[in-house]
Amino acid sequence: MLNLAYTSSKAAVNMITVAYAKELWDTPIKVNAVDPGWVRTDINHGTGIKSPEEGAAPILAMVLLGPDGPTAAFVQDEGRLPW
């Protein structure tokens, strides 16, 4: 069953990510969204296939972006995803 509150909040986060990225486009600040994948957490009762360390890897990569890195991107381990 579709969880309306969860999916709606995810869509809102995506929208605000792009809005902030556009607002900050001409600054050194990068605004991106990261999909860490299915990570073992308390919220999924430990059923994720990735460890927390594996889930943190794409997030850390985006935190360490250089000045030529993307903005308004949606990324995961495998690279950029379409919005």
Rank of each mutant, 00 (worst) to 15 (best):
M1E: 05
L2G: 01
L2V: 04
N3R: 06
N3D: 14
L4N: 08
A5F: 14
A5K: 15
A5S: 12
T7E: 08
T7S: 05
S9K: 12
A11H: 04
A11P: 00
A12C: 01
A12K: 04
N14I: 00
I16L: 13
T17F: 15
T17P: 04
T17V: 14
T17Q: 07
A19H: 04
E23H: 04
L24A: 15
L24Q: 14
W25D: 12
D26E: 08
K30P: 00
K30C: 00
K30D: 00
V31H: 10
N32V: 07
A33T: 02
V34G: 05
P36Y: 11
G37N: 06
G37W: 12
G37Y: 15
W38F: 11
W38R: 14
V39W: 13
R40G: 14
R40Q: 13
R40S: 10
D42W: 12
D42H: 08
D42F: 15
I43Y: 13
N44Q: 11
G46P: 10
T47S: 09
T47Y: 13
T47L: 08
S51Y: 11
P52C: 05
E53G: 09
E53I: 15
G55E: 14
G55H: 14
A56Q: 07
P58F: 07
I59A: 11
L60P: 00
L60F: 07
A61K: 07
A61I: 02
M62R: 05
M62G: 01
L64N: 02
L64T: 02
L65Q: 04
P67W: 12
G69L: 02
G69T: 02
P70A: 09
T71S: 13
A72M: 15
A73I: 06
F74C: 01
V75R: 05
Q76Y: 04
Q76L: 04
D77T: 06
E78K: 10
G79S: 05
R80F: 08
L81D: 11
W83D: 00
